[in-house]
Amino acid sequence: MILVMGPVDELVTAFFLKHLTDTKREYLFVDERHLGGDVRLELDLPQGPSGKGRLRGAVHFPTWRVGLEELTGIYSRLGTGNVEQRKTPEARAEQAHAAALLDLFPGPVANRATAMLSNGSKPCQYAAILAAGLRVPDTLVGGTWERWEPFARALDGDPVIKSVSDERSLVKQVSWEATRASARPGQALAPHQFQQRIHGTNIRAHVVGARHVLACRAETQALDYRHPDMTGHTVSLRATELPEPVAEACRRLSRALGVDLAGIDLIEPPGGSSRPEDWVCLEVNTCPGFMWFEQNAGLPIARVLADFLGTPLGS
């Protein structure tokens, strides 16, 4: 049985629940608004040697319960959407229990609370991306004017500015003159990330269980393909197969970050290449909203994810 946690009316949560319903899978759902109220998590990790079955506990409802041993995998969208979080001690305790469950559950979890932290710092992720064999863009984080100017002037074209963390941001290209004009005298640069703009085709690869790679190419003239309409462009998403060495690099990267569902943003070099070191990885989304890609490119991400999370441990 798959445990799903998140707000029922958050888009991706709803999309995955619908898939589970349509395919008649056994699932248990915990709406985060019930945590600390109608739903309590019981976790018991006794002293002793590691091994299967060490973590015991249950998901408790007022009149019934489901033991953790009945769960095969967990899909979490906790913290997404704009659900008002209850601030009671009980609710906060249950949120902490939920985070612990995501980290300690022995079966597959998409994704574990600690594994998702890597997206909080793109430079941190870049270490893992480079270790997996992919390229990263030339990057300057924050910095002083003394460092910014030679960085920007050495690039081919204006640099791209984007969030250094997992904050949502619209990727923009900014000129040296515009950046300089917006600066306040005597003030350091705001903590943004400046990068070389990479030319090529945007590819989003969803990796499930560090094994299954489902990729699509985004064909658009827009700099940020997620918001093409803001610059008067359109986007077309089309399923594609990655060259096997590149797919294998994506698997390595997912494994290194410990994420069972990754949304990896890649740039395929003009003319294509099967060498991972020719491909640039912009970031790894550790809580990817895969619905848009599934709906528009026909990738069976929900099915593959459900298969992965629904497989009993050890089988």
């Binding site: 958050e10 959407g81 704009n82 309409d229």
Partner: peptide, 18 residues
């Protein structure tokens, strides 16, 4: 869903917890 729908629709809280 189009990309321009996402921010609006991503806001949960329209439907009560089951």
């Amino acid at each position: 869903i189009s990309s321009q729908d996402l921010p609006k629709l991503a806001e949960a809280g329209h439907v009560a917890a089951p």
